[in-house]
Write a protein that binds this DNA or RNA. Structure first.
Length: 271
DNA sequence: AGTGCGGCCTGTCCGC
DNA sequence: TGCGGACAGGCCGCAC
């Protein structure tokens, strides 16, 4: 479920409480996530001080002196800081306990998330090294997207959701940013003009920034590092609004499936 | 090399 | 109320 704004919200929420703190132990209740939590993780983290917490794409990176742990929240994961004495519930698979009594707890009903050890050069890890640019950084530009998309027949929505093209644009914000710039989601990526990519890049940045400001989008169960929901859902123009009136032209919002993902758009406003 | 799809899981909701 | 099926915020790995 979490897209970039939800991961960023989580990261910002937990970092101030965890930086410079010491890890006393980890608790693994269920090792079977998307990939098994490494059996050596406890040994690597125990007694280590947390030097840095940051984000790359939808991964949260937690750095200690001799390496970095990766967290990915998959579709249904959340990370919260709780008191170490708070009872774990059914889908609370992992705890990272600090010596100050706080505990970083991963809850993930569907278990599509992951926790991995990435060593000293985490950005060279197999899962990170070929990721595309960060959408909120300056190197994510219309020229880049335009160049990458030439000759591509793939639809533009699927194209911008490919993390090897640009990270962090998930199913909600892909539909939302395409609506904002009037591009039809099933248009071929290679048939979108440079000028329209200018607009798309701007809208991706805008929608992600607004969502971060609102603390992310909570559809059913996303919560930030303190267990609170995000409030961007009420700002959505198309996602989840099939049959409802377009906020601009009042015609009904349509839903289609692209690459096995539900996609929302306005037939009148998007071409 | 680009593209499309299966699969990984559990929970929820909807129609019968 | 029960049951089957569809669907859900991601994305790797494979076949073509």
């Amino acid at each position: 479920m979490p897209e970039l704004p939800e991961v960023e919200t989580t990261c910002r929420g937990i970092a101030p409480h965890m930086l410079e703190q010491t890890i006393s132990r980890i608790i693994v209740r269920n090792r079977q996530l998307r990939w098994p939590i490494p059996t050596t993780l406890g040994k690597k983290l125990q007694g280590e001080k947390i030097a840095r917490i940051y984000r790359r794409g939808k991964y949260i990176l937690l750095q200690v002196s001799h390496g970095t742990t990766l967290f990915h929240l998959g579709m249904s994961g959340s990370l919260r800081l709780v008191d170490e004495n708070e009872a774990a519930e059914k889908h609370d698979h992992f705890d990272l306990v600090l010596t100050n009594g706080l505990c970083l707890r991963l809850r993930d009903p569907r278990r599509f998330g992951s926790i991995l050890w990435a060593g000293k050069e985490p950005l060279q890890h197999k899962l990170l090294k070929s990721l595309g640019p960060e959408p909120l950084e300056e190197d994510f530009t219309a020229s880049y997207l335009h160049a990458k998309s030439r000759q591509r027949k793939q639809c533009v929505k699927t194209f911008i959701m490919d993390s090897h093209i640009v990270v962090g644009v998930g199913n909600i914000y892909a539909s939302e940013s395409l609506f904002r710039c009037g591009i039809h989601p099933s248009r071929a990526a290679g048939r979108v003009s440079k000028q329209r990519y200018e607009s798309l890049v701007q809208m991706i940045k805008q929608v992600l920034n607004e969502a971060i400001q609102k603390g992310g989008t909570t559809l059913r169960d996303f919560v930030n590092g303190s267990g609170e929901p995000g409030y961007f859902a009420q700002k959505l123009n198309v996602y989840g609004r099939e049959g409802e009136a377009c906020r601009v032209c009042k015609k009904p919002i349509r839903q289609i499936t692209l690459a096995q993902r539900s996609t929302f758009y306005c037939l009148a406003c998007q071409h």
